[in-house]
């Protein structure tokens, strides 16, 4: 190991599971040599998924944005940071005045949620823009849960998450945590956790149109036709209420 090669302990920025990772980086050539799960992380216990291994490729991907870009007709051109900040401030102000706040859309990627600058300044910017055009990866899979939590518990972030490490009966509906690592459940090493439920004598039931990787390690798999889950849930509520 040369002097330039150093080991860094970080957490993976790609999802809420925030797995502990060990990154070996060559500071001379500015390359990542390897990413491994951190066995000393008490939460992820050396688990990482393929996305984290991919950090090595992502870092050297020639398509990765390294400088701000501006669209010029059909093409994009690189620009300096100061110039980009000035232009954004100028044009955001003009857009707000002439077309109103909803003419501006805001997209927030997952890794931003793991970064202090965003956590400090992002909400201020969003509030200043006052746009309701606000998108994140959660727009694809979490917003309906925010809505239901607001109705049921009084706020979007008051979420009833499964107590995976203690429950004795887990029903997984339309979710493939063995691959996704549970997303909002924030539980890296999901396969081990589900197997532990069964080892404790508990049961895991998967309801999904597809026989998923999670279904393959469950006690029971139930297929439903896509788009009919609301009927299934109503039927379950009906049974609960009646029996």
């Amino acid at each position: 190991m040369t002097e330039d090669v150093r080991l860094h302990h970080r957490s993976c920025p790609f999802c809420e599971a925030a797995c502990g990772i060990r990154v070996q980086a060559d500071h001379g050539s500015r390359t990542i040599l390897g990413v491994r799960g951190d066995p000393e992380d008490p939460f992820s216990r050396s688990f990482i998924c393929p996305k984290s291994y991919g950090l090595t490729q992502l870092h050297s991907d020639p398509d990765r944005l390294r400088r701000p870009v501006r669209r010029r007709g059909k093409d994009w051109e690189e620009m300096g940071w100061d110039e980009a900040m000035d232009e954004a401030a100028d044009r955001l102000g003009t857009l707000l005045k002439t077309h109103g706040p909803n003419s501006i859309a805001y997209y927030l990627g997952n890794p931003s949620g793991h970064k202090a600058p965003f956590l400090l300044y992002g909400p201020l910017l969003i509030r200043a823009l006052q746009t309701n055009q606000f998108y994140t990866p959660g727009t694809l899979d979490q917003i309906p849960k925010y809505v239901s939590a607001s109705y049921m518990f009084g706020g979007p972030t008051i979420q009833p998450l499964a107590d995976l490490d203690r429950t004795s009966y887990l029903i997984v509906i339309g979710n493939n945590p063995v691959v996704s690592q549970g997303s909002m459940m924030v539980a890296p090493g999901m396969k081990r956790r589900l197997e532990d439920i069964r080892k404790r004598g508990g049961r895991v039931v998967v309801i999904d149109p597809r026989r998923t990787e999670t279904a393959q390690i469950a006690d029971e798999y139930i297929a439903v036709r896509p788009g009919t889950d609301a009927y299934l849930l109503f039927a379950m509520v009906d049974v609960l209420a009646r029996e």
Binding site: T139, L140, I143, P144, Y146, V147, P226, G227
Partner: peptide
């Protein structure tokens, strides 16, 4: 759209 949440219907 799923009307209550204004989310695009992505499956089914």
């Amino acid at each position: 759209l799923d009307v209550p949440s204004a989310t695009t219907v992505l499956n089914g």
